[in-house]
């Protein structure tokens, strides 16, 4: 009978119980996301601006198209701080334009369209770009065809494309979705179809490099099929360049929309968007700086917050960073 005292084991090897209760993956993501101040701020601002443009017009009920020629060229209310003689009024806190339309109402109304165009066109762009990029990078046989197709689209000038699309599709779209809805679909479509090429090429480049990595080889050796390979192994690894493209894509979509309106192939003139408010105000930049600054700031802040949000999401979704 020998008494054997239990062998002292290393503390590190003891594993009596989990130190914290198990959490779902998404809770982990949320916890990580919360640590990123910029992302939280960006998300908050984006939520604010989205709510503002959705519900704002119900609170600030002046019609954006209401003309009041006697109250034209009003300055925003803050100008009164240093210039007591300026034409200001609490009835128009952001002032009015050269026809007496309320600028705050136009900003809210314009924000709706710009945000909707920006998001939808960006999602469309990312979807086409990622799809083409991944397929071209992964399936060698399709690479040549898809990349030559990308070259083709890249070399087509956007203005004739837009004119052709307006000529061919405006009438049927307007007939089925009304003048505003029809133009909206057309413009989102045009921007989406003409701006995915950069994303596609970058994604393809990344996929080409990833394909040679060991984990892909490992996955292939256990018989992973192509669909699973792409969705489980490749896509999560190309999220970061896609995020960057998406942020830039949102800004580009908002600006492309304004350039289209500027060239006369965009929305009707009584349909404000941020880009169009900005473009229309450039000629009066010296006398009324706020008319360019307000939409300019709105576009910049939106893009900036999408960018931070993207940064935070990328970090939160990357298991290598999460928990460090």
């Amino acid at each position: 009978m020998t008494d054997t005292t239990p062998q002292e084991t290393y503390g590190a090897l003891q594993d009596k119980e989990p130190q914290k209760p198990p959490q779902s993956q998404w809770r982990e993501v949320w916890l990580q996301f919360r640590k990123h101040k910029g992302a939280v701020f960006g998300g908050g601002f984006l939520l604010f601006i989205t709510l503002a443009v959705i519900f704002g017009p119900y609170i600030w009920t002046i019609d954006a198209q209401k003309l009041d020629i006697r109250a034209k060229d009003m300055r925003p209310i803050y100008v009164a701080l240093w210039d007591g003689d300026a034409k200001t009024s609490w009835g128009h806190p952001f002032g009015t334009d050269q026809l007496g339309r309320d600028i705050l109402a136009n900003m809210l109304e314009g924000g709706r369209v710009s945000m909707a165009v920006g998001w939808l066109a960006m999602i469309l762009t990312m979807f086409i770009g990622t799809f083409v990029g991944v397929v071209a990078g992964y399936f060698k046989r399709l690479d040549g065809v898809l990349m030559r197709f990308t070259d083709l689209v890249l070399s087509l000038p956007i203005l004739p494309i837009t004119l052709v699309a307006v000529t061919l599709f405006r009438q049927p779209l307007v007939a089925s979705f009304g003048p505003e809805g029809g133009m909206f679909i057309l413009i989102v479509g045009i921007i989406g179809v003409t701006s995915w090429m950069q994303t596609a090429r970058i994604v393809r480049g990344e996929v080409l490099a990833l394909k040679e990595r060991e984990f892909v080889l490992a996955a292939r050796s256990i018989g992973t099929n192509s669909a699973a390979m792409i969705t489980r192994h490749l896509l999560p690894n190309v999220v970061s360049p896609i995020m960057v493209s998406a942020t830039l894509g949102l800004a580009a979509a908002i600006i492309t929309e304004s350039a289209l309106s500027f060239l006369g192939v965009g929305f009707p003139s009584d349909f404000p968007t941020w880009g169009k408010l900005l473009a229309d105000a450039v000629s009066r930049m010296e006398a009324f700086p706020e008319r360019v600054m307000l939409p300019g700031i709105a576009i910049s802040l939106t893009v900036l917050s999408v960018n931070y949000l993207g940064d935070g999401l990328r970090d939160a979704l990357d298991p290598r960073i999460r928990g460090r």
Binding site: I255, L278, V303
Partner: peptide, 14 residues
């Protein structure tokens, strides 16, 4: 980040 986002989101016609 701030400056480059402003640079990117402000169109050249402004």
């Amino acid at each position: 980040t701030f400056i480059s986002m402003i640079g990117f989101s402000i169109p050249p016609f402004f």
